[in-house]
Design a protein around this nucleic acid. Structure first.
Lengths: 134, 134
DNA sequence: CCTAACGATACAATCATTGATACAATGATT
DNA sequence: AATCATTGTATCAATGATTGTATCGTTAGG
């Protein structure tokens, strides 16, 4: 989850808090500080961080979604809309590649996922267990 | 039968019980606490010992088997696998490789997993080499 | 007053996990 | 051979958690 350390609200300001949140998020997305597919914190979490009610953040989200700047995918949360950033696109290509090859090996989805998850886990446990990559 | 005295579940923990079991077994195997050809308790027995449903332990076993860490020999029970089958080993290499590269891109574990999961899903939706099941 | 915004609460939808039950497979036993 | 027992597996409803949303009373400013 991306820290929303750039979102601040000032209750004594001219514009109301929900508008402050909306604007700062919009700016962050516009400026690239937040990239497409990035996941936003839940309305409750961001609200808690800012000392606001969930409803206030929710309104900011809703307005952003109406404009199409963010997307809400039900249970899964809210995400920055748009196409993938080059960064993630590169990752996605790598991922698609390995999935293709594993599928060529005759693996099913569940098997792939299990192996991939295991790889991620063990890789983070010890930094270079299989560094042999010519 | 080897006593699974090192497996404990905490229903109030972050990760769900089946994942706790899976992880503890995986750790025990990786650390040598459990050795190849060691027989695991039946899903029902371990479940009873832990106060869980058989299904919960079964899920842990199933995921471990997908990765190739354990083997189930039908009627005889489940055993710690020796070396990975060439099939699984190939998959593991591919997986370790892609994880390495994605990590080189500066990705965190959570981001990797999300992208990989997405790749598996979207790949299975597309009309790529569909598993010929004639 | 009246309007806009807030905050607490309740809500509908969705999803993962669990646990009960039934099942297929397979080896043992009679 | 026939039967039984025991393995892991599949299915499915119930539960609980968590998402954004809607409602409603309260409050501050004009």
């Amino acid at each position: 989850m991306i820290p929303m350390d750039f979102v601040r609200t000032d209750s004594s300001a001219e514009v109301p808090p929900f508008e402050q949140v909306r604007r700062q998020l919009a700016d962050a997305i516009e400026s690239g500080r937040l990239k497409p597919r990035d996941q936003l914190p839940t309305v409750r979490k961001l609200a808690a961080d800012l000392g606001l009610a969930a409803n206030t953040v929710a309104r900011a989200y809703r307005e952003l979604e109406l404009v199409g700047v963010i997307e809400t995918r039900g249970r899964h949360g809210s995400f920055v809309a748009g196409s993938l950033s080059p960064h993630k696109a590169a990752g996605a290509r790598l991922a698609a590649d390995v999935v293709q090859r594993m599928r060529d090996l005759g693996m099913g989805d569940a098997e792939m996922l299990a192996i991939l998850r295991d790889a991620v886990e063990s890789h983070s446990r010890n930094p270079h267990p299989t560094p042999r990559r010519s």
